[in-house]
Amino acid sequence: MSVLEVKDLRVSVETEQGTKEILKGVDLSIAEGEIHAIMGPNGSGKSTLAYTIAGHPKYHVEGGSVTLDGVEVLTMSVDERARAGLFLAMQYPVEIPGVTVQNFLRTAKTALDGEAPALRPWLKQVKQSMTDLRMDKTFAERNVNEGFSGGEKKRHEILQLELLKPKFAILDETDSGLDVDALKIVSEGVNRAKENTGLGLLLITHYTRILRYIKPDFVHVFVDGRVAEEGGHELADRLEDEGYDRFLSATGVA
């Protein structure tokens, strides 16, 4: 069984005021088929964790490790990590002018599989997934994320999740900015992907709403660059009622 393991991960970024430590020793272990939710206040380092695992060059690893089935991920290039089976649905997906969704998806699939997918079944899959996610078929001919609304960008991220079939996916606030219907549609997409491939999920969110559709096995409270508490689904409900005060005073953060 596949395992994604984060151990004592410490990460900094360069700021104008100098090096800033953001992750201060994160420990996390996700097994195939598990759903983990991470909740935590703004600026606590959730996206930093997601981007670091994906290999964004802005984040400097000061220590610790991220392994996928025992193999160190942190020394891999960004594309190697994706080919190893990692996927990040981004909080702010990037626009790529002049590159159509269709072309992008096929190029990515080809890169991941090492060979081009057979055309007909592939086009059928793309069409099916787009229909499931209620994406108009014209999106296939549009440029990647260009002029997409916030919610459309998120659907496009989940479309990729369904089609690219990673082993582990990190969803960074995929639920933010979605209307009630879209939230349901996107959640169904995630659940479908999980059913089909048995992937492990790390779900970063501010709201318990999405957790009604995608049921987490574990909830982690992320505060000031580390996991402050872990629990089951009930922890999410408690956070919704009480907020993060309890943790913030405990760690002495304003």
């Binding site: 994906a54 290999g55 964004h56 060059p57 290039s77 960004v78 594309d79 990590r81 994706a82 080919r83 996927f87 990040l88 981004m90 997906p93 990037v94 626009e95 790529i96 002018p97 002049g98 590159v99 072309n103 992008f104 190029t107 990515a108 890169a111 991941l112 440029n143 990647v144 990729q160 690219l164």
Partner: peptide
């Protein structure tokens, strides 16, 4: 190059070289 564009493409498994190619062709395609 916009590094964020390269990162996005690479994060989907596309090699850096291929990502650059896509971005340049995309840039001029308009």
């Amino acid at each position: 190059f916009d590094d964020e564009q390269l990162f996005y493409l690479q994060a989907r498994g596309i090699t850096e070289e291929e990502a650059r190619r896509l971005v340049v062709l995309g840039f001029l395609t308009e």
